[in-house]
Every structure is written in structure tokens, then in C-alpha cells.
Design a protein around this nucleic acid. Structure first.
Lengths: 243, 243
DNA sequence: CGCGAACTTGATATTTGTCAACTAAGGTGG
DNA sequence: CCACCTTAGTTGACAAATATCAAGTTCGCG
């Protein structure tokens, strides 16, 4: 599969071929991580930046009351804990959802890349700002949208983000989340996720079988969710010209 | 009033006296902004970074459905639109809540400071990461806490953040928000804010008169909200030694 | 084929929203 | 300095959304 990090950065930042080559090298040391496994724990003082190369992961936090909040879904090309480079201590955890390939980049490599290659530094900076923009959109969505639009919005976002990194096949894409995970993401119970998801199915907007989601009516999904991709700060995918 | 930006950065980042002096100079060109006035609009392509020097402001977004989500409360020492330096276009707006003093820092000055003064660059970087950490905590709070704990959590956060920048007097601090603004911040109606606020008052946890909030029972407020300041990534205030 | 995890469904409880009226507070012109 | 006027806050009755609890059912895997 094509390099998701580079595709993602290319959609929003500016890299030269030499930068891409350096990034390929820096992210080539990977580990395999089983599903539902912590990559970084809350309160950790990581010594590496982790990058999702393949698979799905999430940021989460266990509140003192014991409930779990999922704060972000991490796709191939997303950094898990770039914030720890400067903040030091993690204020949340990162866990895999599916089995993942994770690149481990030593702080020293990050430091070398950002010190000597300003375009790479800017691209990393861009990625964390884009991340923050997604978190803001989620916050707005959580606060202001009711369950169905909120779920529809998440589906539109995932569709768009996966498209950018070339992980969409027609109108279908991998959607490996349990309803419990969706509930912790959307701030509702898994029971309610179930009902709302069935509502979207009944209305012919999406289908979901064997962890593959297919969008059946994108315009209506966009309309009921109020989705507007501009917060992703990424150019639309440029399709390869068919031979 | 003491320089809030420097107090805030000193609580989490490392600056030398020369850095502080440069920041003082860079933020000395200020404008007065009336209350309820846009500082930066959604979709803008700003040419300056705005910094709140005095007063309260907020990030907000109007969703396509017409509802307003308040995404952050900006206190003295908070940047309004640092993200635009790299992202270019604003994906949300910033408005004052009270009358504010706002510093306008040209992109060129930011660029000069970050290029030539790595500690300042790191401190700016730190500030935007700390900002993102607050947004994540809000997201968790919005998703998982019910109305009273959520409001209590916001009060604890404001108390702590204002303490860091020296804007707390005993247990009291400025709390200039209308119940409508609080509703848009917490994802509930102003009617519900009113009821929950009265609940906190009735239980003897806080009092609120003339836009000044006084915490009457901090331990219990912390307990019901599950507040833990570590996500602010700032050292506790070191009180000046009385003469 | 069986077992555990995930999903589904119904009945009911709780929280929060909506609507509408009323009260209090702050600011301005006479 | 008062009267008015607008905005913010308060309250009650009721409606809607979502949570909770409990019981199945289905699915994927060993």
C-alpha cells in the first residue's frame, strides 16, 4: 500500500522528493501491534513518536468516573503521540483498534529531521494543527448535533480521510469499530449507536457488513450531517489517470 | 497587570530573560476590541497572529444548521489564531466576550522569532499543544459527563488557568459569560445551564454575583467534576513571598 | 459445533430540550 | 435622578432524546 504519511502530508503541506525519501527512511522501522492493545499509556513519558502505518487506532482517556472517551480515530499516516515531544507527559492514551503496523521514530530522529529540514518541520507542525482542527470539529459536533447527524458526520469524515490516503474502494471502506467503540467516540451508549445506525441503514444511506461500510447516498449523508471538508485542510484526492 | 503570555509560557515552557524581553516587544502593539466583536472570522486568511492581552474571548463555529458551538475560552496570554500561520485559512472564528486588549503580531515577526530564537519557537509550539490538550479534555467532558459535573469541570479549569496568569483573587475570579454563552460552550441550552448553575449554588459549591464567581467548596467541586489539572501541562502557581 | 463477544430489541427511567411567561438588572435619554 | 427599555436570568409544564436494564439473537472463531 502506498505510504499514507506522505499522501497525507502532500494533501496539506509541501514536500520535495528528498523530504519524502527521508520520511520513508525515518518511518521504516515498524512493529506489529495486535488489536485492542495500548501503544502509549496515559501519563507515559515516551521516548519515540509512534506513527500508524497500517490499521486503525484511537486516542482515548479514562475519566476518573471510569467512563472511556475516545478522542480521535487514528488512520494510516497519523501520529500517535507527537505532542509528547514537547509536552513530555501523555495526557491520554493511544490504543490500536485493529491489528496495526506502527513505526517507532526516536525523538532524536524527529529532532534531526526538524532541525535540518525546515519543510519537514513545517509538515509535522501542519499535521498536528490539522489534528487539532479535527478535534475542534468533533467538539462542535458532539455539542450541537443529535445522534444521527453526529454519526453521519463521522462517517463522512472517515470516508474523506481514508480517500486522501487511498484507502477507499469506490464507496466502500473498512469500518472495524464495535458499536461500543463508536459509542465512546460519539458520547452515547452502544445501544443508542445501534438504533441510530439502523436508522441510517433503513433510510438507505449506508450499508455495513463484515466491517465494511458502503455509502449508498453521499449527498444526503452530507446534507443531514452538515459535513464540510474544509476543516480537514487537505486538497481533494487527485485520481491517477487511467492508462 | 503582569504579562499573562509570559506567565503562561513560564508555567510550561522554558524562556530566558532575553526571550521574555523579545516577547514583550513583539506583543506591545495592541488594539482595543469591544465586547462581542469578531477578532478573526471563519474562512479568513489572517496576516497577523492575535493574542489576548486582557479580557475574555472565545473560539466558535457556526454549524450549517445555524447553531453556535464555542470551542475554547481564550484568556489573557492565549493566542487566537496561531494555527493560521501554517494552515492559512481559519476553520473557525474568534470573538471577544468582554472588551479586550488584543496584540497583533505580523506573520513576519512570528517568523523572525521562531527562526532565530529556538526557545521561543518551542514555547509557541508548546502553547498550541497545550491548547489542543484542553480541547481534548473538553471533548471528553462533553461526551461523558452530565451537565452538573461538566459545568463544575469548566469552573475548575477556569479557576486554574486564571490562577496561572495571576487573575484570581482568593477564591474569586471574573466570570463574565452569559448563560447562553455557557450553553453554547457546554452543549446545552441556556435554560438548562440556569438550572444546573442554581443546583451548584444551592449545594453551596459556588456563588456568582455581578459576573464574579467565588468557589465556596473547591474539594467538592473537584470531586464531582473529576477535575485533574495535569492536562493543562502547567506547574502550579508559585506564590510571591510576602515581604 | 460450541462459546464468547458483539449486536439487537423492547420496556421503562432519566436527562435535557422546548416553549412561554415572567422577573431582575443594567444602561440611556429625558 | 428617574423612567423606560432591552437584555439576561428564572421558572413551570410538557415533549423529545437518550440512558438503563434485561433478554434474546447472531456472528466469528477455535
Amino acid at each position: 500500500m502506498s505510504n499514507a504519511l506522505i499522501r497525507r502530508l502532500d494533501a496539506g503541506a509541501t514536500l520535495l522528493p528528498t523530504d519524502r525519501a527521508r520520511l520513508e527512511v525515518a518511518t521504516s522501522a515498524t512493529i506489529a501491534c495486535p488489536p485492542r492493545h495500548d501503544v502509549t499509556r496515559d501519563n507515559d513519558l515516551p521516548q519515540h513518536v509512534h506513527l500508524v502505518v497500517e490499521g486503525f487506532a484511537c486516542r482515548y482517556k479514562i475519566l476518573p468516573e471510569g467512563r472511556r472517551a475516545i478522542l480521535a480515530l487514528l488512520l494510516p499516516g497519523d501520529f500517535c503521540d507527537f505532542n509528547a515531544v514537547l509536552l513530555g507527559r501523555m495526557d491520554h492514551a493511544v490504543a490500536t483498534i485493529t491489528a496495526c503496523t506502527i513505526a517507532k521514530i526516536p525523538f532524536q530522529t524527529i529532532s534531526e529531521l526538524t532541525t535540518n529540514h525546515p519543510r519537514i518541520a513545517r509538515a509535522f507542525w501542519w499535521a498536528t494543527l490539522a489534528d487539532a482542527a479535527i478535534t475542534r470539529e468533533w467538539l462542535a459536533s458532539m455539542g450541537q448535533r443529535s445522534a444521527a447527524p453526529q454519526l453521519a458526520h463521522l462517517i463522512c469524515e472517515l470516508f474523506t480521510r481514508l480517500q486522501i490516503i487511498g484507502r477507499v474502494d469506490g464507496e466502500s471502506f473498512s469500518f472495524p469499530f464495535t458499536q461500543e467503540e463508536l459509542g465512546d467516540t460519539l458520547g452515547m451508549t452502544s445501544v443508542h449507536v445501534n438504533r441510530v445506525l439502523n436508522q441510517l441503514r433503513d433510510e438507505g444511506l449506508v450499508s455495513l457488513h463484515a466491517r465494511v461500510l458502503t455509502i449508498l447516498d453521499l449527498p444526503r449523508l452530507v446534507q443531514i450531517s452538515g459535513f464540510d471538508r474544509s476543516y480537514l485542510h487537505s486538497l481533494p484526492v487527485r485520481l491517477a489517470i487511467p492508462a
